[in-house]
Simulated assay, not measured.
Amino acid sequence: MTSKLKLTLACGDYEIIRPLKEGAVSPDGIELNILTGSDSATRHWRFLRGQYDVAECSGSSYLVARDRDMPFRALPVFLHRRFRHGFVFINTGKGIEKPSDLIGRKVGVKFYQVSAILWLRGILEEHYGVPHKSIEWFAELDEDIAFDPPADLKLQRLEDSKSVEKMLADGELDALLHPDIIEPIVNKDPKVGRLFPNYKAEEVRYYQKTDIFPIMHFMGLKRELVEQHPWVVANLYQAFEQSKAMAMKRIRNPRIIPLAWYQEAWDEQEALLGPDPWEYGLTPRNRKNLETMVGYSHAQGLISRNIPLDELFLDVSQGRKRGTFRA
């Protein structure tokens, strides 16, 4: 029997990769060892140090890696997207009532490079008139890839004993941009709130204005893998497409999810975002999404130029009207 190419894939434990993980979908000629145990920050850091063949990777950090010609490439597969207006947290005693109140304030981040924070800085600047250089930034963790901040960027790295969540609750920070729902919000700490209390309505307005459902993560590959086995690119991409199609068909069944109004939520999402908000590939909508992300990265001093998308992502086409997976 012909042996398959053995690859290690690290990613989040998403429904849209369940068919791949469980073996219902298998990329042609490839045997995947799929790891889903790491948190995002750890997985991204380890991939960018060569520990996985293929991995879901921070979009922001991948842009920095490609700007420096590090040995990685990416498929236009986007396992994680998220609207971010609900992830701007404030200390409720600091008189912050609107976005412009953040100007001149002390604002924490887990680390500066993370995709969620890249998007939030860009959105606050472009849509709410809050220049990212008008804020004093405090970062808790080291970056996925070390970088030299622009001379006029106010960015401090906190000592290991400090936590940005605790600093926000204690009033040492005025606000916090974070990729996750923070503990003070979960615990309903009255000292901590959201900049946008009705964040869903704000996110809907943002989407209606921009047609952007922000992409957070790309699917990274080692460059040597692509060079040695170029056929892997299309085969992996097709498998991710098949897995997503199979998963979306499964979870269309409202009995799958234990939520009383799941069908209504699904219908609401489809009416606003369309039938496939998680679409892969360099479609027109995804191009706008990604070009916005690249533009924010360049404007914020993380990358040295606006990198063209066709340079950032591998070509997954198999010729006109060939190799198209039909759900």
Rank of each mutant, 00 (worst) to 15 (best):
residue 122 G to I: 02
residue 161 S to C: 03
residue 93 G to D: 00
residue 46 R to H: 14
residue 61 S to G: 13
residue 51 Q to H: 10
residue 85 H to F: 15
residue 115 S to T: 15
residue 140 E to H: 04
residue 105 R to W: 02
residue 102 L to T: 14
residue 142 D to A: 11
residue 101 D to F: 08
residue 123 I to T: 06
residue 153 L to K: 08
residue 98 K to P: 00
residue 90 I to F: 05
residue 77 V to P: 01
residue 97 E to W: 00
residue 76 P to H: 04
residue 137 W to S: 01
residue 61 S to N: 02
residue 92 T to N: 10
residue 134 S to G: 08
residue 122 G to K: 00
residue 66 R to L: 02
residue 66 R to W: 01
residue 117 I to E: 04
residue 122 G to Y: 01
residue 127 H to Q: 15
residue 143 E to M: 13
residue 96 I to Q: 06
residue 54 V to R: 02
residue 90 I to M: 01
residue 160 D to I: 09
residue 34 I to K: 09
residue 163 S to Y: 02
residue 135 I to C: 00
residue 69 D to S: 14
residue 59 G to I: 07
residue 88 V to G: 07
residue 103 I to P: 04
residue 145 I to S: 06
residue 60 S to D: 08
residue 70 M to R: 12
residue 31 E to L: 05
residue 77 V to N: 05
residue 144 D to H: 14
residue 37 G to Q: 07
residue 60 S to R: 03
residue 94 K to A: 05
residue 163 S to K: 11
residue 92 T to Q: 03
residue 132 H to R: 06
residue 45 W to Q: 12
residue 147 F to P: 03
residue 35 L to C: 13
residue 129 G to P: 04
residue 157 R to D: 09
residue 82 R to I: 13
residue 93 G to E: 08
residue 28 D to K: 03
residue 70 M to P: 03
residue 69 D to Q: 14
residue 79 L to E: 14
residue 100 S to E: 11
residue 64 V to S: 11
residue 162 K to M: 14
residue 112 Y to E: 00
residue 138 F to P: 09
residue 67 D to W: 02
residue 52 Y to L: 01
residue 93 G to K: 07
residue 106 K to R: 15
residue 91 N to A: 08
residue 162 K to R: 14
residue 83 F to T: 13
residue 40 S to T: 04
residue 64 V to R: 01
residue 158 L to R: 05
residue 108 G to T: 06
residue 142 D to C: 06
residue 95 G to S: 03
